[in-house]
Amino acid sequence: MNDNRSVKEKNLELKPSPEKVKIAAFLCKWCSYAGADLAGGSRKKYPPNVIVIRTSCSARTNPLFVWKSLEKGLDGVLVSGCHPGECHYSEGNYHTRRNFAVFRKLLEYIGIEPERFHMSWVSAAEGDKWAQVVKEVVKTVESAGPNTYFSKKKEDNA
Protein backbone atom coordinates (compact mmCIF):
# COMPACT_ATOMS: atom_id res chain seq x y z
CA MET A 1 0.00 0.00 0.00
CA ASN A 2 1.59 3.29 -0.92
CA ASP A 3 1.90 6.11 1.57
CA ASN A 4 0.40 8.60 -0.74
CA ARG A 5 -2.90 6.93 -0.56
CA SER A 6 -3.10 6.54 3.18
CA VAL A 7 -2.37 10.25 3.57
CA LYS A 8 -5.15 10.94 1.13
CA GLU A 9 -7.42 8.55 2.98
CA LYS A 10 -6.80 10.32 6.23
CA ASN A 11 -7.57 13.59 4.61
CA LEU A 12 -10.86 12.49 3.11
CA GLU A 13 -13.33 14.99 4.35
CA LEU A 14 -16.45 13.30 3.10
CA LYS A 15 -18.62 16.35 3.30
CA PRO A 16 -21.16 16.30 0.50
CA SER A 17 -21.11 19.67 -1.17
CA PRO A 18 -24.47 21.42 -1.02
CA GLU A 19 -24.55 22.22 -4.74
CA LYS A 20 -24.13 18.58 -5.80
CA VAL A 21 -27.43 17.24 -7.06
CA LYS A 22 -28.54 13.87 -5.79
CA ILE A 23 -30.69 11.63 -7.90
CA ALA A 24 -32.45 8.36 -7.11
CA ALA A 25 -32.71 5.80 -9.90
CA PHE A 26 -35.24 3.00 -9.72
CA LEU A 27 -33.94 0.21 -11.94
CA CYS A 28 -35.56 -3.07 -12.80
CA LYS A 29 -33.24 -5.91 -11.92
CA TRP A 30 -33.44 -7.66 -15.29
CA CYS A 31 -32.50 -5.01 -17.81
CA SER A 32 -31.48 -1.61 -16.54
CA TYR A 33 -29.75 -2.83 -13.39
CA ALA A 34 -27.86 -5.39 -15.47
CA GLY A 35 -27.08 -2.66 -18.02
CA ALA A 36 -25.64 -0.54 -15.21
CA ASP A 37 -23.57 -3.55 -14.12
CA LEU A 38 -22.32 -3.91 -17.67
CA ALA A 39 -21.28 -0.25 -17.71
CA GLY A 40 -19.20 -1.11 -14.66
CA GLY A 41 -17.79 -4.22 -16.25
CA SER A 42 -16.68 -2.16 -19.24
CA ARG A 43 -15.42 0.69 -16.99
CA LYS A 44 -17.64 3.35 -18.53
CA LYS A 45 -17.21 6.46 -16.42
CA TYR A 46 -20.17 8.61 -15.42
CA PRO A 47 -20.96 11.14 -12.69
CA PRO A 48 -21.55 9.81 -9.15
CA ASN A 49 -24.78 11.69 -8.46
CA VAL A 50 -27.13 8.81 -9.17
CA ILE A 51 -27.87 6.25 -6.45
CA VAL A 52 -29.63 3.11 -7.60
CA ILE A 53 -32.58 1.48 -5.88
CA ARG A 54 -33.09 -1.98 -7.31
CA THR A 55 -36.64 -3.15 -8.05
CA SER A 56 -38.10 -6.29 -9.56
CA CYS A 57 -39.60 -4.54 -12.57
CA SER A 58 -40.11 -0.95 -13.60
CA ALA A 59 -43.81 -1.62 -13.05
CA ARG A 60 -43.00 -2.13 -9.38
CA THR A 61 -41.93 1.50 -9.22
CA ASN A 62 -44.95 3.11 -7.73
CA PRO A 63 -45.22 6.78 -8.80
CA LEU A 64 -45.48 7.44 -5.07
CA PHE A 65 -41.80 6.45 -4.75
CA VAL A 66 -40.91 9.23 -7.13
CA TRP A 67 -43.17 11.62 -5.32
CA LYS A 68 -41.66 10.70 -1.97
CA SER A 69 -38.13 11.11 -3.30
CA LEU A 70 -38.84 14.62 -4.53
CA GLU A 71 -40.81 15.52 -1.44
CA LYS A 72 -37.91 14.44 0.73
CA GLY A 73 -35.61 16.74 -1.19
CA LEU A 74 -33.86 14.60 -3.77
CA ASP A 75 -33.09 16.73 -6.79
CA GLY A 76 -34.11 14.27 -9.44
CA VAL A 77 -35.50 10.81 -10.08
CA LEU A 78 -34.87 8.35 -12.89
CA VAL A 79 -37.02 5.31 -13.58
CA SER A 80 -35.56 2.80 -15.97
CA GLY A 81 -36.62 -0.58 -17.28
CA CYS A 82 -36.37 -2.97 -20.19
CA HIS A 83 -37.31 -1.67 -23.62
CA PRO A 84 -41.06 -1.81 -24.27
CA GLY A 85 -41.82 -5.24 -25.61
CA GLU A 86 -38.82 -6.77 -23.86
CA CYS A 87 -40.04 -6.77 -20.29
CA HIS A 88 -38.93 -9.85 -18.41
CA TYR A 89 -42.51 -10.13 -17.24
CA SER A 90 -43.97 -9.58 -20.74
CA GLU A 91 -45.80 -6.35 -20.23
CA GLY A 92 -44.69 -4.70 -17.00
CA ASN A 93 -43.07 -1.74 -18.68
CA TYR A 94 -46.22 -0.95 -20.63
CA HIS A 95 -47.87 -0.36 -17.27
CA THR A 96 -44.88 1.72 -16.23
CA ARG A 97 -45.14 3.84 -19.31
CA ARG A 98 -48.81 4.48 -18.75
CA ASN A 99 -48.49 5.10 -15.01
CA PHE A 100 -45.78 7.66 -15.48
CA ALA A 101 -47.38 9.41 -18.42
CA VAL A 102 -50.16 10.33 -16.02
CA PHE A 103 -47.74 11.08 -13.22
CA ARG A 104 -45.71 13.43 -15.38
CA LYS A 105 -48.84 15.45 -16.02
CA LEU A 106 -49.40 15.67 -12.29
CA LEU A 107 -45.87 16.95 -11.70
CA GLU A 108 -46.41 19.53 -14.39
CA TYR A 109 -49.70 20.56 -12.85
CA ILE A 110 -48.30 21.17 -9.41
CA GLY A 111 -45.32 23.00 -10.86
CA ILE A 112 -42.35 20.71 -10.28
CA GLU A 113 -39.72 21.27 -12.95
CA PRO A 114 -40.01 18.57 -15.62
CA GLU A 115 -36.18 18.41 -15.59
CA ARG A 116 -36.35 16.51 -12.31
CA PHE A 117 -38.12 13.41 -13.54
CA HIS A 118 -36.73 11.06 -16.16
CA MET A 119 -37.52 7.72 -17.69
CA SER A 120 -35.35 5.54 -19.86
CA TRP A 121 -35.25 2.07 -21.37
CA VAL A 122 -31.86 0.44 -20.98
CA SER A 123 -31.34 -3.23 -21.77
CA ALA A 124 -28.90 -5.62 -20.13
CA ALA A 125 -26.66 -5.24 -23.17
CA GLU A 126 -26.57 -1.45 -23.10
CA GLY A 127 -23.81 -0.49 -20.70
CA ASP A 128 -22.83 2.40 -22.94
CA LYS A 129 -26.35 3.66 -23.02
CA TRP A 130 -26.64 3.55 -19.24
CA ALA A 131 -23.54 5.71 -18.85
CA GLN A 132 -24.95 8.09 -21.43
CA VAL A 133 -28.35 8.24 -19.73
CA VAL A 134 -26.76 9.05 -16.38
CA LYS A 135 -24.67 11.83 -17.91
CA GLU A 136 -27.69 13.38 -19.56
CA VAL A 137 -29.95 13.04 -16.54
CA VAL A 138 -27.35 14.59 -14.24
CA LYS A 139 -26.84 17.45 -16.66
CA THR A 140 -30.56 18.13 -16.94
CA VAL A 141 -31.17 17.94 -13.20
CA GLU A 142 -28.20 20.25 -12.63
CA SER A 143 -29.79 22.74 -14.97
CA ALA A 144 -32.82 22.77 -12.66
CA GLY A 145 -30.56 23.17 -9.61
CA PRO A 146 -31.27 21.97 -6.09
CA ASN A 147 -34.83 20.94 -5.42
CA THR A 148 -36.34 23.43 -3.02
CA TYR A 149 -39.96 23.05 -4.08
CA PHE A 150 -41.15 21.32 -0.94
CA SER A 151 -38.85 23.08 1.54
CA LYS A 152 -40.05 26.45 0.14
CA LYS A 153 -43.65 25.30 0.46
CA LYS A 154 -42.98 24.51 4.09
CA GLU A 155 -41.47 27.93 4.71
CA ASP A 156 -44.38 29.63 2.93
CA ASN A 157 -46.83 27.78 5.10
CA ALA A 158 -44.96 28.64 8.27
Binding site: R54, T55, S56, K72, G73, L74, T148, S151
Partner: peptide
Protein backbone atom coordinates in the same frame (compact mmCIF):
# COMPACT_ATOMS: atom_id res chain seq x y z
CA UNK B 1 -41.73 -9.63 -0.69
CA UNK B 2 -38.15 -8.61 -1.32
CA UNK B 3 -39.26 -5.20 -2.57
CA UNK B 4 -41.96 -4.14 -0.10
CA UNK B 5 -43.41 -0.64 0.03
CA UNK B 6 -42.02 -0.27 3.52
CA UNK B 7 -38.55 -1.21 2.32
CA UNK B 8 -38.48 1.09 -0.66
CA UNK B 9 -39.93 4.04 1.26
CA UNK B 10 -37.35 3.27 3.95
CA UNK B 11 -34.60 3.39 1.36
CA UNK B 12 -35.81 6.74 0.05
CA UNK B 13 -35.94 8.15 3.58
CA UNK B 14 -32.45 6.93 4.35
CA UNK B 15 -31.09 8.57 1.21
CA UNK B 16 -32.64 11.87 2.05
CA UNK B 17 -31.77 11.95 5.76
CA UNK B 18 -29.09 14.58 5.11
CA UNK B 19 -31.03 16.34 2.36
CA UNK B 20 -34.16 18.16 1.65
CA UNK B 21 -36.39 19.85 4.10
CA UNK B 22 -33.61 21.29 6.20
CA UNK B 23 -31.93 22.82 3.24
Amino acid sequence: DGFTEEQIFGQIESLTADKGNER
